[in-house]
Structures are given as C-alpha cells and as structure tokens.
Amino acid sequence: MFNGPTQYASDVDSIMFFIIAVSVGFLVIVTVAMIYFIFRYNKKRHPQARDVKESAILEVVWIAIPTILVLFMFYFGLQSFYGIREIPADASNIKVIGRMWQFSYAYPNGKKSDTLFLAKGKNYKLDLITTDVNHSFFIPAYRIKEDLSAGKTNYMVLKPAETGEFDIACSEYCGLNHSKMYSKLIVLEENQYNEWLNQGINKNTDSTKTTNAAEKK
C-alpha cells in the first residue's frame, strides 16, 4: 500500500495506518457519543436522570474488542520488527561511530567517510558504537533507529531499495550540538558504489568530505 525507500519502511507505514485507523474509529465513537449525550440528555431537555442497569455484557464487550485489536497490533509490530533483527548471511558489516557531535563510518575494506554510502539492493549490518555518551542513529525515511549505547555495540540491519539521498539524525540527546548531529545516507547503484568504495582506498582520505560534510546548515 505504501511505497517507501525500503520494504521495511513501507511495512511500518502500513502498521501505522492500521493503528491510526482503529484509533480514529475509537476517538470518533467516544467523542460523538459524548457530544450527543450532552445535547440529548441536557438538563433542560431531560430534567430527571434515569437509572441504567449495570451491564456485565457491555463491560465484557468493551474489554474484549479492544483487547483483540491491540493483540493484532502487537503481533504485526513484532513480526515486522523481528524481520529487521535477523542478520542476513550475505550482509556486509559497516561500523557507525558516533561522537559529540558527528557520525562517521568505516567500511570492511578500511575506507572511512563522514557520509554513509550504501549500494541499492544489498544487505547491510551496521555496528553502532559511541566513543563518548549515548547517541541514536535515526534514518527517518527508513523508519528505523537504534541507540549508540555507551559501553556496548548495538546493531541495525537494512536493505536499501532505492537510490537517493536520505537524512540521518541523532535522536538521543547528547549535549550542546545535539541538533547539529546530522549526517547523510547516499544510496548508489551497485557498480557506482563499488567504484566509490575502491576509490582512494590506500590513501585513507575522505573523498566525500568536501562535498557532503557541512551541508546540513
């Protein structure tokens, strides 16, 4: 139903749609009923309150229906979340290193960059490491984030389905320039990507620095 830059992002949007639809349903029922009662049973129109019998059936119904609905929500969320926790056998490992207040990336062949480059259609496992306080690695377009937690290594699995540029933000408060801790994800076609990956590898310089590092403003 939704078309995101990854399969997972589309799934998250679908689940969100389901939850919001159910929520709007409940909200409308509650609000409309309340407003109707306030007018229909207004003191002027309805001077004598009537006793209404307690209803065990009603209580059971409005416990049971929401319970079933939330169990579905729970299940959909769990299923889709577990999908991105399994590490595919062919995933390449990239290190994400956070420090106050920037992200940097280290690739398996020793290359380093300030912008995350990935190839379309490939599986990746990102190892998330912080050198100081907690940060969180958030790619809004991918509907995904995971903390860089001091003292341990967390991971994240992703598979870009489209080429393009995407924002990366730090979403765990980390002090003075927390709001400047933006980075970029650039997804390339596989052949372009390989070219980029092997470019200047032995010089160990950051070829992307000039073009990408400080454009966040």
Partner: peptide, 17 residues
C-alpha cells in the same frame, strides 16, 4: 490511542525520541 503507536515495536522504533 497514540500510546498504541508507541507500544508497537515497529512504529515505536521510528517515532522514538
């Protein structure tokens, strides 16, 4: 009701923080 979005693993991961 928006708490349901936060209880759900998939959607919470996105809107967390």
């Amino acid at each position: 009701l928006t708490g349901l979005v936060l209880g759900n693993l998939a959607t919470d991961i996105h809107v967390h923080g």
